[in-house]
Design a protein around this nucleic acid. Structure first.
Lengths: 245, 245
DNA sequence: GCAAGCCTGGTACGCAGTTCCATCTTCACG
DNA sequence: CGTGAAGATGGAACTGCGTACCAGGCTTGC
């Protein structure tokens, strides 16, 4: 965590800001990479070392986000897959909400510029593929379940994006978006179950209390418990106890 | 239907063939637009008049296909929407089966070249949007059904592409692909019906037992608890309770 | 303090895609 | 047939993205 690294992060931030400023002033196509580099006080070469392409500066957090999702999905255990799925998507939502105005700027930009829309689609496909990979694995990993896993993954991503876009367009506030998203995921639940229904017999799945708003992942070591509504925690204690055993 | 039009179509065919030949010889990136134009005996300028971009020569029938789908969907009447949906997707499948080897060449090319994969995704999104537009209209066209229309459209397109890809990879023959596709669409039927079912009133969902603890996230939000030793969980309950308040 | 690396920025290059213009073909009409 | 208009063609020049290469400055380790 040396000074050099810190300064590089700062430099990177400066480039991103310069880019967004210029995009706002002259539009995306009207802004050359050279202009961005100049305003940020770096060379054109350095820009391309920081970002693979001009488009990439618009979605700078994408890779980190993908990694975070993968990390969250990896923690899923039998019975907690749906919570993992829901919370992993929520990571994306939260990232955007955190970015706030810049995310909305990017959205406005993306609406206008075809090249950026393509870029956005590429991101969405990466999310879908990631989710599909995990769901497919959870559901057995054989060829017959692949299509269902794909459908399930796409459904989650689509639902998430639907809510996200509403927020990006300013149609709902941050808190509304959160609750709406949870609602949508809950609505989707039966769909995912349907998709999960395998062609042949599934491995049995004991009741784990996932519908009770609590999930737990535990394998001997430390246990992590997620309680969706802290106010009803005491009602859930028996369930949690059960899950931990 | 003059001689000129005929000759132009022929010329266009020559360019496409030249492009595919060169892609096979030197790869996509290794082939310049100038080389394609030269081999086809036309000018570089003419190439860009025929195809918007280098990528476009790889998917030359795309626009026509979109139009055909739209035409088929337009003929849907109350009660025949699902047939229209199924047959419209089948148009795509049939187009590929008709193209035969060239379609498989394109698929192989698309697997290797990122730019072409992006292009393919863009096509898929166009299909999804088209289907969504129609489904949404069929289901009333109000905001509440939009998400469900989106989910339904994506499900159809995803299922179709799944089968199509199996054929493109040579895993199934043409006839198998056709029957499999119909089978898949039939399986999807109950899903589409579910998606069609209107959303619960925007007011409030009544408090059913199975959703306990999940819905009321407005206060406090989810809590995450880490228990270092799951075995001692019960001893920690009072303290956790305390922390949550 | 010196040498071995890396980060930086500059130059040059290839190529996609656009614009402009001169030339050639096609077609309609007298 | 002939002629003029409209449109199609190809060439040349230009912009800008992305890459390769190189030289100079800065950090890092000994």
């Amino acid at each position: 965590m040396s000074e050099a690294v810190n300064s590089r992060n700062h430099q990177r931030e400066r480039v991103i800001s310069a880019a967004f400023d210029l995009f706002a002033e002259r539009g995306y196509e009207g802004t050359t990479v050279e202009a961005i580099a100049d305003r940020a006080g770096v060379g054109r070469t350095t820009f391309f070392r920081m970002f693979r392409a001009k488009e990439s500066v618009v979605f700078p957090a994408h890779d980190r986000l993908l990694a975070a999702i993968e990390a969250r999905l990896t923690t899923a255990r039998p019975g907690t897959e749906k919570v993992a799925l829901s919370e992993a998507s929520e990571l994306v939502l939260e990232q955007y909400l955190r970015e706030g105005e810049r995310a909305r700027q990017r959205y406005a930009l993306t609406r206008e510029v075809e090249a950026l829309r393509e870029r956005e689609r590429a991101s969405i496909f990466q999310y879908e593929r990631l989710f599909r990979r995990f769901i497919h694995r959870w559901w057995g990993g054989d060829r017959e379940t692949l299509l269902r896993a794909e459908l399930a993954a796409n459904a989650v991503v689509t639902a998430h994006n639907h809510v996200l876009r509403a927020w990006l367009r300013g149609e709902v506030g941050a808190e509304e978006a959160r609750t709406w998203f949870r609602e949508v995921i809950r609505d989707l639940d039966s769909q995912l179950s349907w998709y999960e229904r395998p062609v042949h017999a599934p491995g049995r799945r004991e009741h784990t209390g996932e519908h009770d708003g609590v999930s737990a992942a535990s394998e001997g070591g430390p246990a992590v418990i997620v309680v969706r509504d802290a106010n009803e925690f005491h009602e859930l204690v028996p369930r949690i106890q059960e899950l931990l055993e």
